[in-house]
Design a protein around this nucleic acid. Structure first.
Lengths: 347, 347
DNA sequence: CTGAAAGCGCTTACAG
DNA sequence: CTGAAAGCGCTTACAG
């Protein structure tokens, strides 16, 4: 392995001169630079980034914690995140909680051991209330409230709920089935804002006097369960005339409806929540609430930027502690609008 | 930041003793260990992994270069890879070529700068013949022949082609449309083994006297193009009675067929190549050639293991150079069987 | 079994 | 504008 030392020797200059040339820092005379550069080329010198990382205590790597990217929602989100980070010269370390026996605590560990500069938390594991706030390193949550000081980016699920409810009410739905995660996540003080779309739909439909049942489809990582659930709906609720669920659930429900000879949208409407590619490849183009992946990813990246800037900032307690106390925003939350994309599965 | 030095001071022992305790290496007396451990706890010591990385010249990170994980094939593959690597305590660095303005050469750069221990190459960019072999660091290719010394793992596309052809012949297809990547990739000496399934199908259908047209669907990252292509088939070939393409293409083609009132499978058969989740969420369960993701990921990981072992090995030219010459396998290629999963879209 | 020393490869003040 | 020196935080021979 050829190092700076070798280059310095070959060029007949000092170590620091080589460093200056490599980093294009400070002033180096033209011929010094030339000598160094030709030596680098001749020896085929490649700087060892690890040494720099050690010195700077930075790896330019962000951990992206997802339940699993086998799920289209999370693969889409991750793809967009990766683009945002790459544009900032940040690497994306893929951290799945469902594909692995590793929980996110192992990833947090890696964060603290300085192998990552920050973490995007989009997995669904639950933790004691103070777990996240006690970490004191750059974390940004997606669609999770993790506690004071952990910024959140999420879609406007209330809006999503309103859009769905309006569609269903206007089209004269009579019996709606909502498919979603474990109802236990709906408890008071839940950390899952996602549920608000279900709650909103339920409330608005109730006000309109429309029957609405909720069916649990298992956790987001259990895709087989989604498929089974979607098929079972028709047994359990023979007179269902509208189904609302994730792209996966909606697609499978639509498929099952076709198998049973149920006319969509005449006798059954289907609305997908998420709006990934899968909503376009189902039996018909699904009417979908589209979460705005580019905007979500951009917002997450911007938040991450500032979290990192804050972290890299005053390592020693700043003299004006009071000022920073004043600055403490009460868990900044950024809400991204959604849109209803009309498809072929609603009236 | 509290470091080993602080722990040593607090425990009243030397630096190396702390190191031994932390790494659970060598012999440390019980009370020494106890003192150190309590000091670590009190100071809340967290080892800085960067320093270790520098010393060991290893990051335990594998770069996974994909065109884009927005495509279901690559997100599925990546999910499985991540599982395999995690089981080996290797991190997965997500490297997309299509989601980014970065080409894989930038990732190769990171490999050489020792920020990654190895690279899985599954993207589709072309390079001069000697590019890959000149890197001399752990690389394993998926479905790409990259040159001498770069192991390849791929599905048995010839078998895939045979399975498809047999299905089409046995069911009495008359006019088949094959949808795939740019035909320019089919040139002699191509580095894309994938094309062999098309070539095999074409040959076998020709022998059977069945008409077969090839339609280009754009690169794998251009999903919008796939969708457009799938719809256009019906205009271009009004009498098509079988369509073969990736999960995405097949799903969209099926959707379009339904829109046009074409009966599947009676008047049109559809076969999907890949067999991801998307093949299950289309309008009907797609008959699919399923690539064996778990086996592919496992094979890639095993190859990566040995590439890394070889790389970490004799840094200095070994005395028996001749022996290693003899050992040089001519580009090991591991071929994983595929399977035809019968669905509702074939007769 | 423990400690002082050198070193992983680079960076950055700091004298000249 | 250049060079000798200290240091990033840890590891590992190597004396004791």
């Amino acid at each position: 392995m050829v190092g700076m030392r070798d280059v310095a020797k070959a060029a007949g200059v000092s170590l620091s001169t080589v460093s200056l040339v490599v980093n294009n820092t400070g002033y180096v005379s033209a011929d010094m630079r030339a000598k160094v550069e030709s030596a680098m080329r001749q020896l085929n010198y490649i700087p060892n980034e690890l040494a720099r990382n050690l010195y700077r205590n930075r790896t330019n790597t962000i951990g992206v914690i997802m339940p699993t990217i086998a799920h289209p929602f999370f693969s889409t989100l991750t793809a967009h995140l990766q683009r945002e980070f790459a544009a900032r010269d940040l690497k994306t370390l893929l951290c799945s909680t469902a594909d692995t026996d590793k929980g996110e605590s192992e990833y947090i560990d890696m964060l603290q051991r300085h192998m990552m500069d920050g973490i995007i938390m989009a997995a669904h594991t639950e933790h004691p209330a103070d777990y996240w706030t006690s970490i004191h390193r750059p974390i940004v949550a997606f669609d999770r409230t993790l506690g004071e000081g952990v910024p959140v980016v999420r879609s406007d699920h209330e809006q999503g709920g309103r859009l769905i409810a309006r569609q269903l009410i206007d089209s004269g739905a009579r019996h709606v089935v909502l498919v979603g995660g474990p109802r236990s996540q709906f408890a008071e003080g839940t950390t899952f804002p996602t549920i608000r779309y279900h709650l909103t739909v339920e409330r608005l439909l109730a006000e309109a006097g429309i029957a609405c049942d909720y069916v649990e489809a298992g956790t987001v990582a259990d895709i087989a369960a989604h498929e089974a659930t979607a098929c079972a709906i028709f047994e359990q609720y023979p007179d269902v005339d509208a189904i609302v669920g994730s792209d996966v659930v909606a697609s499978v429900a639509l498929q099952e409806a076709s198998r049973r000879g149920i006319e969509v949208p005449a006798d059954l409407q289907v609305i997908a929540y998420d709006g990934t590619l899968m909503a376009e490849t189902a039996g018909k183009r699904l009417t979908a609430i589209r979460q705005d992946f580019p905007a979500i990813a951009a917002a997450l990246a911007v938040r991450m930027d500032s979290q990192i800037a804050a972290d890299g900032g005053p390592a020693s307690p700043s003299k004006n502690d009071s000022a920073s106390d004043v600055d403490t925003q009460p868990t900044p939350e950024e809400v991204i609008p959604v849109a209803l994309i009309p498809g072929e599965t609603t009236r």
